[in-house]
Structure formats: structure tokens, C-alpha cells
Design a binder for these strands. Structure first.
Length: 386
DNA sequence: CGCACCGGGTTCTGCCATCTGC
DNA sequence: GCAGATGGCAGAACCCGGTGCG
């Protein structure tokens, strides 16, 4: 606390020395004021052209510099904030410091989202409390703010935040699920409730259209499986659902099962990307003599395959095929594609050394964690030694 | 014990466009 | 005409282990 006061005194002192030397005036307030602007306009020689309508607040700039804020970045992001006559940078910094944020983190937050310094302490305290209803500790919130300052600071509407939380709870989310959502996709909570509701309605309507019995539960399940859904546009999710339906020629019940199952994970993909990846997968599989049914089967059981870009997918498939695995086996166990090409290559090599027979034993061994794989390999090696 | 199934963790923010309200 | 609020976009996998069953 003493350090805070010291810093504050230093900032005030610096400001008064640097900017108002002749006045001998020491600002008492923590907020920056527009004294320099008022002075400079009266000091300006009348022959010079008039300054732009709103010049930057020099004393604010000094303050930010002293705080370690990247002013160039801040200017680039939100130039208007730097022109404001009155801001709360010191109080906001102090507030964040009180929550455990380091000097460096605070500077980084303000550099990336300057509007943060326009928030009042009352507003921040209230917003923090609302987040704290979901998070266990202040430190956890600080981590999110450091990661994504915009998520916390972009909206000044605490009432909307409250309504969002109530809305999500009304969908049947418990604290743990709310926590996961806010931690993973904090922007969700800055959306207007209306926007979040639109997405939920899209999901519910989709479920109902497909003959689902419980649209509310469906929406909740899809969101739980893909926490990024609510920060995507309704247009994108709608388009993706249609792409999946159309390109795979799915029946209503198949589509329903896909969406509330593993398919939820790819709903937030850019639609163009989804289309492109579907086409390249199809092309690749056709070239490998797969049937339409194989393509459908693979995507239904492992939609994440559509996340993989063309180059990565080709490399991965080629690596597996070269290692003696057949396309039929991959279609049966597409989850091996979850692992990196590098990882797959190493495992194939190691299995080759112990003479592993994929025809006899299948390829599931590739789809395990490093720990489990190593244990398995040891057992295999031991059985050879005997 | 060994395996298959399944879901979770990580990080997915930072920028631009558009409207709204003063 | 300004700044604030909010919507929307691009980007492009990999890995781990709990649990239940035979």
C-alpha cells in the first residue's frame, strides 16, 4: 500500500513538474484533467493554425507512459480515449493491483484495451463481483483479463452481464459449466443477452425442426460441447449446419445426433473453411478409392477431421498409409488423426521395431496418450524377449 | 490388467465495421 | 461529428486420462 501511495505521489509530482512547471500546482485528484489542453490553447500563438478539434490529453499521455503503457499501441486501438479530458487510469490501475495484477499486466491491459481507463471504480467493483460469483479467486480473473482485456472491459453494461448469467442459468447451466464457459470464451458474457438468446433460439429451432424432443436440452448440450458457439454469428452456425446436412446427405435424425454429439465441435468453424476442408477430404478419399459411405461414416464418427487443413491431412494420411495402415482401418478408427504427423511417425517407427502387426491387432494403439503408449510398448518389447 | 469409449484441457484474441446516442 | 457499444470476422489441432467392462 505504501508503494501505491508512493507511486501515486511520484506520478502527481512528475505531472506537475513536467507539465505545469510555472503554476506550482500539484493535482490532488487521481484522475487526469485537461489542464494542459486549456493552457496550450491559450498559449498558442494566434498566427499558428488551429490545432485539431480534440488534441490528445498530454497529462494523460505522461501518466500512461509512466505506467509503462504502450501509448503507440493504445493510440492505434482507441485514439479517442487519449483525447478524453477526464480518465481514471490511476484508480483503475490501483483497483487491478488490489486484485493482484502486476504492474506489467496492468500496463499490458491498458495498452491493448485503453477504454478500460474510462470505467469508474464503482462500475469495476460491481463487474468484478459478478465475475467472482463464477470464479473462485481474483487471480483467476486477472489471468483472463491479461489474456483478453476486451472481454472484461468492452461493455459498460453490468445489468446486461447480470441478465446473461441469469439467462445461461435458465438454460440449466450449473456453476461449474458457467465457470468453464466464462473461462474459455469470456466474450460470451459481454454479448447482449438478445444476441445470446438468438443463438440459443437458432439451436432450439434447429432441434425442433429435426424432430428433437427436447430443444432446451439440445441447445445446452451443443453449447457445452462447443463453448465458442455463443461468440459466433447465427449466420455462421446456420450455414455450417446446412453445409453438413447438404454435403453428407443426412437424414434429420442423423443430423440431430451429429450436432449434439461430436459435430458440435466444428459448428464454429469458418463456413468457407468447412466447405473447403470437406471438399479436399472428399477428393483425397476418392483418390484413395473410398466410397461415399466411407466418407460419411468417417465424418459422422469424427467430424474433427474437417478441422484439419489440406496439407496437414495429406501428410497425416500419407504417413499412416506408408506405415502399412490401410484406409479402411483409418475409416474405422479416424481418431488416430487426432495426433500430430510427427507423433504418428515416431509411433509407427517404434511399433515397427517390435514387429507390431496392425492387421492382427488394429490401430487403436496409436490413439492413446504418450504414457499409455509407452507402457504398451514396454509390454510388447517384454513379450518379444521371452 | 488391458482395452475402448468418451469428454475435457489448452487458448480463441485482436482487429475492423456499423450502429447509436449524445 | 465524436466516442462508445456491440457484432462479426480470420486463424486452422493435439493430447490426456477417467471410467467401465471383460
Amino acid at each position: 500500500m505504501a508503494a501505491v501511495r508512493g507511486l501515486r505521489a511520484l506520478l502527481s509530482l512528475h505531472r506537475s513538474v513536467a507539465l505545469q512547471p510555472s503554476l506550482g500546482f500539484v493535482p490532488v485528484q487521481l484522475t487526469s484533467t485537461c489542464l494542459s489542453r486549456g493552457l496550450s490553447s491559450s498559449d498558442t500563438k494566434s498566427s499558428e493554425p488551429l490545432p485539431p478539434v480534440n488534441p490528445e490529453n498530454e497529462s494523460l499521455l505522461e501518466n500512461l507512459n509512466l505506467m509503462g503503457v504502450d501509448v503507440t499501441k493504445a493510440r492505434q486501438r482507441q485514439p479517442g480515449v487519449l483525447r478524453k479530458a477526464s480518465t481514471n487510469e490511476q484508480a483503475v490501475a490501483q483497483f487491478l493491483k488490489g486484485k493482484g495484477a502486476s504492474h506489467k499486466v496492468i500496463a499490458s491491459i491498458i495498452s491493448r484495451y485503453p477504454r478500460a481507463i474510462t470505467r469508474s471504480i464503482g462500475h469495476l467493483e460491481q463487474r468484478w463481483e459478478l465475475w467472482r460469483n463464477i470464479f473462485e479467486t481474483d487471480a483467476e480473473i486477472v489471468t483472463i483479463l491479461d489474456r483478453s482485456p476486451e472481454s472484461f472491459f468492452r461493455s459498460s453494461d453490468n445489468g446486461n452481464l447480470e441478465k446473461n448469467i441469469a439467462f445461461l442459468i435458465s438454460l440449466g447451466m450449473n456453476t461449474k459449466e458457467l465457470h468453464r464457459l466464462l473461462k474459455t470464451a469470456p466474450r460470451t458474457f459481454s454479448n447482449s443477452v438478445a444476441l445470446n438468446r438468438q443463438m440459443v433460439e437458432l439451436l432450439e429451432d434447429t432441434c425442433a425442426e429435426l424432430g428433437g424432443k427436447n430443444p432446451e436440452k439440445f441447445a445446452k448440450v451443443v453449447i457445452s460441447r462447443n463453448l465458442y458457439i455463443l461468440i459466433r454469428s447465427v449466420k455462421r452456425v446456420k450455414t455450417n449446419i446446412n453445409i453438413l446436412r447438404g454435403s453428407l446427405k443426412l437424414s434429420d435424425s442423423e443430423l440431430l445426433a451429429l450436432l449434439q454429439g461430436p459435430g458440435a465441435e466444428i459448428l464454429d468453424l469458418s463456413s468457407e473453411y468447412l466447405k473447403k476442408n470437406f471438399n479436399s477430404l472428399k477428393q483425397k478419399m476418392v483418390a484413395l478409392h473410398c466410397r461415399q459411405a466411407d466418407i460419411k461414416k468417417m465424418i459422422l464418427s469424427y467430424p474433427m477431421v474437417l478441422y484439419i487443413g489440406l496439407d496437414t491431412l495429406s501428410a497425416k494420411l500419407d504417413c499412416l498409409l506408408k506405415g502399412g495402415i490401410t484406409m479402411e482401418q483409418i475409416v474405422e478408427k479416424p481418431k488416430v488423426l487426432d495426433y500430430s504427423t510427427q507423433n504418428i511417425a515416431v509411433r509407427l517407427e517404434e511399433l515397427k521395431k517390435v514387429g507390431y502387426d496392425f492387421k492382427k491387432n488394429g490401430i487403436s494403439v496409436l490413439d492413446t496418450s504418450r504414457k499409455r503408449f509407452d507402457a504398451k510398448l514396454e509390454r510388447l518389447a517384454a513379450s518379444i524377449d521371452q
